[in-house]
Amino acid sequence: MDQKIVDLGKISGKTLLFGGVYSNLQALEALKQIAEKENIAPENCICTGDIVGYCAQPEETVQLFKLWGAKSIVGNVEIQLRENAEDCGCDFKEGSRCDGFSQLWYPFAQSKLSQNSLEFLQTLPYYISFKYADKNVTVVHGSYFNVSEFIFKSTDWDLKKPNFNATNSNVIIAGHCGLPFHHQEKDQLWLNPGVIGMPANDGNPSVWYAILDDSNNSFNFTHQTLEYNYKLTSKLMQNGLLPEEYSRTIVTGIWDNTEILPALESGLQGFGIQL
């Protein structure tokens, strides 16, 4: 695998972190407005990948992302799309419900993306690194070693730690698993800002992102929820081509299944998230 990494150098000021836009144009529009309201420049807005995914407007979403000028790494979906692969590369168990759903939304996304959008996806790196408040930060999708690896808060630190060693980082910012969390051990922080394209299985249609703040030259972060026009997103998904279960999740905030989740995270379904 190409180990392409983009080093942004030193970043200062508020920085917006998010992932999993999943072709959800309404959520991306709302997040862009948040960035503008907070005076966060596009170059300080960083996505953990999977700009394309489950929702109904892949082409419009990629084009808005490109127009905005935010930064992103590739998710497994971008890798598969730009290689014209036959599946999403999500590492779902064969025959699972998620696998079955992916056989609907992935070819739908393939059919909608223009050559211009595919060429934009070709420009995205596998990793982004930068320095923030004297911390070395690396942005990965699943993990540094496997773009499709599901890493959760309950995932053992022994599985997370090699990522810090391999990248010489104090902070790993990751995506892919769909849930926001942070896990700190001594001076090392694993931070998942969550995704904006789908709710976090917490029984709420709002979605999650994070903001870094280097006030007083210290590394601070906050998890934030995003309100957006989820009813329109859900309605657009009811097109007879995408999984109806996903359009329901957009409204209910509850995942159709918890196949990918460890026992701890699965047991928290619908209980809300306090971060």
Rank of each mutant, 00 (worst) to 15 (best):
L191N: 03
W208Q: 04
Y230K: 03
N136K: 15
F150Q: 07
N146M: 07
K235R: 12
K186G: 00
F130W: 02
K231A: 11
N239V: 05
K231N: 08
I254R: 13
F219P: 04
H183E: 09
L212W: 04
N192E: 02
F152R: 09
K160L: 13
N165G: 01
D214G: 08
F150W: 11
H183N: 15
W190A: 08
T249H: 09
A210S: 13
H223R: 02
E259C: 08
F145A: 14
D134S: 14
E185N: 08
N146P: 00
S154Q: 11
L159G: 00
V139N: 05
L242M: 07
S218D: 12
G142L: 02
S234R: 07
H182P: 00
H141G: 05
I172T: 04
T225E: 10
N257L: 00
F145N: 10
Q188R: 11
L179Y: 11
L159Y: 12
N204C: 13
N163I: 00
D202K: 12
F221A: 01
A166L: 03
K153S: 10
S206R: 15
S215M: 04
L189N: 06
D187Y: 03
N170P: 00
F164D: 04
N239Q: 08
G203S: 10
H141F: 05
H182R: 04
I250W: 05
V195S: 13
I260W: 14
F130T: 03
E259N: 06
K131C: 05
A133Y: 09
L179D: 02
I172H: 05
S154N: 10
L226W: 06
